[in-house]
Nucleic acid binder design. Sequence first.
RNA 1: CGGGGCGUAGCGCAGCCCGGUAGCGCGCCUGCUUUGGGAGCAGGAUGUCGGAGGUUCAAAUCCUCUCGCCCCGACCA
Length: 573
Amino acid sequence: MRLSQSFIPTMRQDPGEAEVISHRLMLRAGMIRKVATGIYSYLPLGLRVIRKIETIVREEMNRAGAQELLLPILSPAELWKETDRWDFYGKELVRLQDRHERDFCLGPTHEEVITDLFRREVRSYRQLPLTFYQIQTKFRDEIRPRFGLMRSREFIMKDAYSFDQDETSAQRNYQRMYDAYCRIFSRTGLQFRPVEADTGLIGGISSHEFMVLANTGEELIVFDPDSSYAANVERAEVVPPPARSPEAQKPLEKVSTPQTKSVEEVSALLKVPSNRVVKTLLYQTGNDEITAVLIRGGHQANEIKIKRYLGLHDLTLASPELVGKITNAPVGFVGPVGLSGVRILADHAVSTLTNFIAGGNEPDLHFMNVNATRDFSIDDIGDFRQAKAGDPSPQSGSPLQTARGIEVGHVFMLGTKYSEKMGATFLDAEGQSHPAIMGCYGIGIGRTAAAAIEQNHDEKGICWPMPIAPFQAQILPVTSSEAVHLASEQLYDELSQQNIEVLIDDRNERGGVKFNDADMIGTPYHIIIGDKGLANNTLEIKDRKTGEKVLLPPNQVADWIKDAIKQHLHTQS
RNA sequence: CGGGGCGUAGCGCAGCCCGGUAGCGCGCCUGCUUUGGGAGCAGGAUGUCGGAGGUUCAAAUCCUCUCGCCCCGACCA
């Protein structure tokens, strides 16, 4: 392709609107332009990357036995009402009416539509298993779209849905998708890690997220350096600490703690390590129901675990007013001693403590030497805190490490949630009717492109991994002599004929401009053609990522490039 | 939705506090010279100052309302 005739509007300056690297570089390299918050146009260069990722996804989905189809973007409210998601999905679901005032929504995901298709068409276990996928534009009216394609409202997603007749087969299908995802992300050339993920209220079976590792990632994951264990912190299990031989219980004591609310303040004032202080969080878990959760100092409550334990999908901390009503104390002085009419949950780490410090339920008061059972009673003990670096791995016991990641894919066992509600059943060999067992599997295509940039860039621009680079090689005629022009055109023809995706910068620009644009666009190989080199009968090939330079006679360049590309595509698949 | 900030030329910004009719850099157009890491000189074009209303002889500037955008917290591919 000729740069002079291409619409690749690069920007010299950083646009003010963009904060994260991938967003900035996508704008500056002329890949995308914003239309409205969280809504972008894909310009030619950006679309090429999107298409490359889609191609890899498509190939691997097909290889895994999934069949491509395309569902409508608009879907009727009736389907969503069947699963209660019309109400449950909330404001994220964009609703609209047609001219007859019938309700529709823009599909944020397609369980309802695909399940509807299934129930209309599939009757027998002989037709199973089935896995469908599509690559389609989704719309979710995100609370806060940001970071360009990383979290947009309109986005391209590959979503797949599997239907199986029994657990075993469903598990096999899940594994097949899991493996396909591993191949997909390996092939994109990205560093990634599958991690155990929260299954939410649907509960149970399995869910994994695929994280592209990047310091700017929004997700925090923990992993075990000595085993395959890795999990989203939201999900990561905390192993209960070993029981300690209890200290002798000391008498309960009141201490005055004016103005000391946080665990840090209390531990500083009383000169006691923070791991002997217990914080008491009050959650409003029903209209008239309050649940207290006890977490040790230095630990963080994990609301997802608490929600799961309580079987709730909303959990809100009690308001300061409410806290005052229940405890006669402001927030910061709440404790379990003397707390009445409140269910008390304790994290494992709290349950093994003796003689700890807790709020006194009066202003400016704490208790010392609190002991469960003697001073108050715990209703339930469980895993209610967030895992952190250094916690023992559930698999090997080694200290867990943390990393940041960008969630680019998610595989999820749905079970029969949708098939039951929507009556998507089949008849087994005995003529018995069963709901199909479903799984769903998503990949954010645009987010994958963004994640690739987060992971592969330097101060000059993008360094695309070969498999998803918009072009494989870029020719930079860097002086304006006729000889350079001829050599460039000749090489361009040669590479094009060999099906190399080559971009030639045939603009009437100075060398510096071409160098900088090429670096920003991030084509893996730059072929620099100038009078200096031609005088020695050489062209210069530069590896964008490593900066390594190779000088070669013009007639050897095409072969060299071809080999290099082959190697890149090969080693990464 | 809560908190913070910003809307002035295609892009990045100054001007606003203290009202007097809009400026800088980059880009763009023309010409000449240049041409291996964002060229030089000369000339030129470009603005409903986000929108509406108000105060005033006079509003980018002050007041009210509104719309849009960005950043920080609760969602998810």
